[in-house]
Simulated scan of single mutants.
Amino acid sequence: MCVDRTLLPCMTSILDHKLRRAQLLVFQDFAGTFSKLRLRPAEFSVLAMIAKHPGQKQTTIAEGLGIKRANFVALMDSLERRGLAERRKGEHDRRSHSLHLTEEGTRFVEGMAQLWSEHEDRLVARLGGVENRERLIALLDKLLCGAAPLADDPDQPQAH
């Protein structure tokens, strides 16, 4: 079967292609910025959430970040081994764990925040300023609104 190539749009004009390329650029800058701290994006997110919401339940943070339970446990194990965060048994429910930064973790997050600011400043400059950053965030929020699949996907659970 022969495909009529005039019906295919130019690859550089396809939205998903542009979004993926932008994601790669942002992740490459993130990786370069945080390599000296040996920090991956998921670890960054977990530390940022713990810093913002100390004492939050492990399950709440995992769900908020969209991280599966098994993966989250491994992330927390790694952060605990590094002395950056700790799990504490719940006061009322000893089966649940609340998450906290250690003293070392608090210092680490302060340095992490400075590097994040530099990373964000580079991206904002590339976008042409804060106004464009705000516009991009608003557009991405529109795209993500509802977070439901845009097309029928047989592998995705259907809402009823």
Rank of each mutant, 00 (worst) to 15 (best):
V26E: 15
R69N: 13
L115N: 07
L79D: 07
E63K: 15
P149M: 14
C2M: 11
L139C: 03
I67M: 07
D16H: 09
P54Q: 03
H97L: 00
V73Y: 13
D93Q: 14
K57V: 03
T106E: 13
P154A: 03
H119M: 06
I61R: 04
A48V: 10
S35T: 03
M76W: 01
G32P: 12
L84S: 08
L65N: 02
G66V: 06
G129Y: 07
V3F: 02
L150D: 13
V26F: 14
R87H: 06
T60Q: 04
F44V: 06
R82P: 00
T12V: 08
L115S: 03
C145F: 12
V26M: 11
T6R: 10
G105S: 10
L99E: 14
T6C: 03
H119L: 10
W116G: 00
R126C: 02
P154Q: 06
H53K: 12
K68V: 07
P149L: 09
S98M: 09
L143G: 05
A48L: 09
D155L: 13
Q58M: 08
K18H: 11
R81M: 10
R126V: 00
K57I: 02
L99P: 07
T60E: 14
R122I: 01
L115D: 11
A48H: 07
F27Q: 15
W116R: 13
P41S: 02
T106N: 07
L7P: 01
C2A: 12
V3Y: 04
A125E: 11
L19T: 06
K89T: 06
I61P: 06
Q23D: 11
L101F: 00
R82Q: 11
A138H: 04
C10S: 12
R135C: 00
L39N: 10
T33D: 07
D93Y: 13
D4A: 04
L8K: 05
D153S: 06
L75Q: 12
D121C: 00
L39A: 02
L15G: 02
G55A: 00
R88C: 04
G66A: 04
L139H: 05
Q28L: 13
A70R: 12
H17L: 04
R81S: 10
S117F: 03
S45I: 02
R95P: 00
A138K: 04
T12D: 12
H100W: 15
D153E: 08
V46G: 01
T59V: 09
E91M: 09
E134T: 06
C10P: 03
Q56N: 08
E120N: 03
H53W: 10
S117E: 11
L47F: 13
V3W: 01
E103Q: 15
L37N: 07
L140W: 01
H53Q: 13
K18F: 00
L123S: 04
E91G: 10
L75V: 07
V73I: 11
Q158M: 12
Q114S: 08
G66K: 05
R81H: 11
E91T: 13
E43F: 03
K36H: 10
T12E: 12
I137R: 07
H53C: 04
